[in-house]
Design a protein around this nucleic acid. Sequence first.
RNA 1: GGGGGCUUAGCUCAGUUGGUUAGAGCACCUGCCUUACAAGCAGGGGGUCACAGGUUCGAGUCCUGUAGCCCCCACCA
Length: 874
Amino acid sequence: MKKELATKYDPSSFEDRLYAMWSENGYFTPLRDDTKTPFTMVIPPPNITGQLHMGHALDNTLQDILARYKRMCGYPTLWLPGTDHASIATEAKIVEAMRKEGVTKEDLGREKFLERAWAWKEQYGGRIIEQLKKMGSSCDWTRTRFTLDEGCSDAVKEVFVRLYEKGLIYRGERIINWCPHCKTSISNAEVDHENQKGHFWHIRYPLVGGGGYVEVATTRPETLLGDTAVAVNPNDERYKDMIGKYVVLPLVGRRIPIVADEHAQLDKGTGCVKITPAHDPNDFEVGKRCSLPMEVVLTEDAKITDSYPKYAGMDRYEARKAIVEDLRAGGYLAEIEDLEHEVGTCYRCGTTIEPMLSLQWFVKMEELAKPAVKAVRDGDIRFVPERFDKNYFHWMENTQDWCISRQLWWGHRIPAFYCDDCGELVVTKESEAYCPKCGKKMRQDEDTLDTWFSSALWPFSTLGWPNETEDYKYFFPTNTLVTGYDIITFWVSRMIFSSLEYTGVSPFNTVLIHGLVRDAQGRKMSKSLGNGIDPLEIISTYGADALRFTLATGNSPGNDMRFSAERVEASRNFANKIWNAARFTLMNLTDDTDFYSLDVASLRPEDKWVLSLFNKTVKETRENLDKFEIGIALGGIYDFLWDILCDWYIELIKPRLFDKEGATNKAAQQTLNYVLSGTLKLLHPFMPFITEEIWQALPHVGDSIMVSDYPEYNEDFNFPADEKYMSGVIDAIKAVRNRRAEMNVPPSRKAHIFIKTPDRSAFEGSEIFFEKLASAAGVSYLEGEEPENAVSIVSGDSVLYLPVNEMVDTEAERARLNKELENAEKMIASANSKLNNADFVSRAPEKVVNIEKDKLEKFTALKASILAELERLN
RNA sequence: GGGGGCUUAGCUCAGUUGGUUAGAGCACCUGCCUUACAAGCAGGGGGUCACAGGUUCGAGUCCUGUAGCCCCCACCA
């Protein structure tokens, strides 16, 4: 019934075995049970290109803690895993691999390229899944999904068609962010802003017909080629007469008008702005308002187009140099200012974004954003910690239309078809279409959708939507979403408005936000810095439990954390501590003991004391987990296990355990097994492997700790009197140890303890604890004279005398007692000042007042003892 | 420009709705190989909780301001 544990804690010897056992027994797969409320989470799908990094490790540790906790609480728990096709990242990776072979996308053609991409997915896509398993993640792998699988693709098409029909998806020419390296449009959310050093070039545009020039300024002089106007503010007195006149565009020679538009600000620069409608979002708006031509001057790889032969084929930066040089030569350059400004860059490759006029697909955001804001405002969805809702609101309330088309092949192809003959457009879920007007076979849009378009549907597309599957009906909406704050705008916000629009409900009720895992110096872990720590290496050195403990402990929602080997070592030491406590327990459990009942009547005070503290720990753990205070919950278990169970309880009961014939031996065994098993259960969500391995070795009922019941607060296991008694005994033992250590008395030198106390029952029954834990040769109660050459130890209302053979330094004793007296008086004064304050007594809660009363009582008694002691020394 | 966060022991950080003498890990000092654990045990030193005000019976915790560091968002030529 009980088993041996290896002498040494070696997580690698059992972690994989236990994971396989859980998996084979189907514990990760929930059963739908209409009599029970399910608990559902969807994993933030890692990119198939990805390798497990610390961010995943943290994210998945938190999710697994919640999943295992809820499962043990009896909820049919579905943690649904999967991966993201990550269109832009994956395509870039494959293109890069092809480049090494000297092959381009175009060489292969779409079909062959996609074959290659799928092959790549088959080969590497599962890698990260295997790595998640190493972490102990209790995902239901039978329900693993992929954003590009059939079901998800169906959901994507369904959504696209519905939104199009509703007028919420449209195709139009807008200024989009163009990445010249990835050669695709990207959304605003995918643009990073980076501070760059640049220049502000002031350029003179001569007025047509002479009479001077207007001066404009720009950070991108090459866009001059695309200028189709100069704008001034309609209220600008300086230029009133110029409106409607023309200037000559330098180098190009084109006549362009001076227009009036609010965009030009009176107090900014010269008040004149060059307008490049095809390469600047503001200018685009001006262009629309003033009906200006839109002149595209850059190709898709950011080279000047053939329309400008002198610069054609030059890269945008080469062209910038050449144009500035030519402006200088032509006398158009007025001034060059140094300037630091924010430049948009591609979040994938870091290339500077080129705003460009382009025909793309967009999602109209205004109408979708409103209910999404409301859901959070009304509390249907709650961010933990709450402060992130500000982030969310700000983004949701200011978001612009979402550019969803990408000039990529790896992804969901846009379900739109064009008729080359009559220009008809059809949007349909079908894989081909014929023109409703002329019957001709239509050509499908070449572009694919933004990766985030499919991730936005993840909580319901993975459960079968748009079909009303059993899973969808039972598990949706999900409960908790766990993710980093860096992904709220990309993903969380889009899931919320998507779900509200298509399913009519919020996709989850809680968003648990965590921070970034940084290195020991607080820097972001990144490939370029090379400061990343590989979770798999940590696992192989210290074990998955140690890694998980490190990530969970002291972690508070939304805050970044630093990761260092020292912290993992401390975690491993904790695991080792548990391991040894368990080994000790197993050595002392005997087969003839009944471990399945606990007879309270047979328990000694220390048993009841530990049960009572365990019970408190259970309550606090559950409360904290329910509040998502995972770090605090774990801290409580850690303290109980190490400080209470190991450092005190086990030491207290050693004499009873070693005396197999003793009357209270069985009760000690039972209590120890009960409390240790219970603590392992409390700890299981955090450290699943070690808790399972030990639980299996201990006497137990059931097949696995992971499907056992999470401990519940037990009203019958509250023993306040025993708590008070034991804390008095422990205080006294600590006081004795303290004094002995101060005097450098080695533990081997035992000394008798004489106790002078108004209430012997405060210590009776605990004499053996003083012998074992305070190096006492024996304990007796003092009636008359204090012993000669004894140091005194004041603890509560009692004084303990320790006869040491040396002459006691009376002066030193007096000084020490005076110091203690001072402290006691300070405490008494503090308590008195509160208790004498009528406002305090009347306004503070009774509990707080009682604490002060107890404090006063305790230190008054202590003071009396100290004074008596001082008296004796005189 | 807007928003948010951080500042607590030598270091890294907890501190849950304001309420016992502000905690932990690591590091440091002292003593222990006490037959579960030296990855350990016992004891110890070390903090005017960034600064200045305010609210409150009571502030590390709430409010205002100041300083330093960090992050997010934003189309300003």
